[in-house]
């Protein structure tokens, strides 16, 4: 199945703006993100906390819905969907 991962803010400089991927049916978000992170210098540290879960401030949006960290850990992806992943920027 096909899906699109969009990155924003400083994640865009690290991972690029958009990844269009073909993944096996039933693939989980965390598997996909770990795979992207593993191929990017410092990618794991940017996305993941030491416990292996997403850093708590990383925003994951599935359509208009924010995916809570606990649910992100098991989120199964659907064909054709777009997931947005980004950190809030904080400066003023």
């Amino acid at each position: 199945m096909n899906l699109t991962i969009r990155f924003f803010a400083q994640f865009r400089e690290k991972f690029g703006a958009m990844r269009e991927l073909t993944v096996p049916e039933g693939a989980r978000l965390m598997e996909v993100l770990h795979e992207i992170a593993a191929r990017t210098p410092d990618g794991e540290a940017a996305l993941f906390a030491p416990d292996g879960g997403l850093r708590d401030y990383v925003i994951v949006m599935q359509g208009p819905e924010r995916v809570e960290r606990d649910r992100a850990a098991t989120l199964e992806l659907r064909d054709g969907e777009t997931i947005a992943v980004f950190p809030p920027v904080a400066g003023g």
Partner: peptide, 27 residues
Amino acid sequence: AVRGFHGQATTCVPGRGPCLACLFPNV
């Protein structure tokens, strides 16, 4: 909010959409 060349903006109107804590529960 801004960082480098990146920025974000939204308008939180009570009763008409998400508030800032809906969008960013962790900082």
